[in-house]
């Protein structure tokens, strides 16, 4: 049997997680509660997992941390420090939908359509929006109000609402509208420019210079000058050949470019080297 590519195994994990968060509220409804919670805070049979931004908001307002939250946010940040923001590429259900919509947009819309082009790198816009949101939270809110911007949390909450109290949340429309805009713009706007939850993961990743990265070896590249299959394959519209420090902040280590490059000289690959 053929060994599944990185992309196939990633899709299997993503779809598995997306289905798991439908099943968990359903199981809870039938009193099986080894797994509880949503993407803001999750309890996996005793192991706590938490969204670092939610924990940060609670800590800032209460000067308080519980052991559960330290472990939960620590696991998420530690993983990002070593392997980069693989939460976004392997686990986040909105990331899955966003990727699928991006692929669909490429397939359906005409090739000549370039989509929305935005100047400047995503991370700078993200820093700006994040600091705007965080200062708004510190000034005007006591509740962790940035949690409402967590799209994976809304995804899991829709099913919590549905299976536990038979309430169909209109947040479904909210998610669909964002996906529709991304389809028309042919850019993964939310993931690249807005998602405040990913900001802390990116910050944790930048704290470790020897984290997992996509590396490019120019001498191995077999593509002609005008060919860039790796760039075409990148759902975040990055250029894997020119991943400098700034562009690399947007990379989710999904490995799609590496899969494409496998047949073309294996010039791209994962590595733990520090930045040159």
């Amino acid at each position: 049997m053929k060994k599944p590519t990185l992309k196939t195994s990633r899709r299997i994990v993503q779809i598995g997680v997306a289905i798991a968060f439908i099943l968990i509220p359903l199981l809870n409804h039938f009193r099986i509660s080894y797994f509880t919670g949503n993407f803001l805070c999750f309890n996996a049979a005793g192991l706590p997992l938490a969204d670092p931004l939610a924990v940060l908001q609670i800590t800032l307002k209460n000067y308080y941390l519980s052991v559960d939250l330290i472990i939960g946010a620590g696991i998420a940040l530690g993983l990002a420090m070593i392997l980069g923001t693989i939460f976004c590429s392997w686990i986040c259900p909105f990331g899955l939908f966003s990727e699928l919509v991006h692929a669909l947009s490429k397939k359906i819309l005409p090739k000549t359509y370039k989509g929305l082009t935005i100047k400047g790198t995503g991370f700078r816009i993200k820093i700006f929006l994040f600091s705007l949101g965080l200062s708004g939270f510190l000034l005007f809110s006591t509740t962790p109000v940035l949690n409402q911007l967590s799209l994976p949390a809304w995804y899991s909450r829709i099913f919590q609402f549905y299976f536990e109290q038979k309430h169909i949340s209109l947040a479904i429309l909210f998610l669909l509208v964002i996906l529709l805009v991304e389809f028309a713009a042919r850019r993964r706007l939310w993931c690249s420019y807005i998602c405040p939850q990913s900001f802390l993961l990116i910050a944790a990743k930048l704290a470790n210079p020897r984290r997992l990265k996509v590396g490019f070896q120019e001498e191995k590249c077999l593509c002609k000058k005008d060919q860039d299959p790796c760039r075409q394959s990148c759902s975040l519209s990055l250029d894997p050949k020119r991943l400098d420090y700034v562009l690399e902040t947007g990379c989710n280590n999904c490995g799609d470019c590496i899969v494409v490059c496998k047949k073309r000289g294996k010039a791209l690959g994962f590595q733990f080297r520090g930045s040159k």
């Binding site: 509660s33 919670g37 803001l40 609670i58 509740t143 962790p144």
Partner: peptide, 18 residues
Amino acid sequence: KEFLARCLQCGQCAQVCI
């Protein structure tokens, strides 16, 4: 006020409520 500042909105309390 303190409750709202601490609640993570994760819904675990609703999920364990028998």
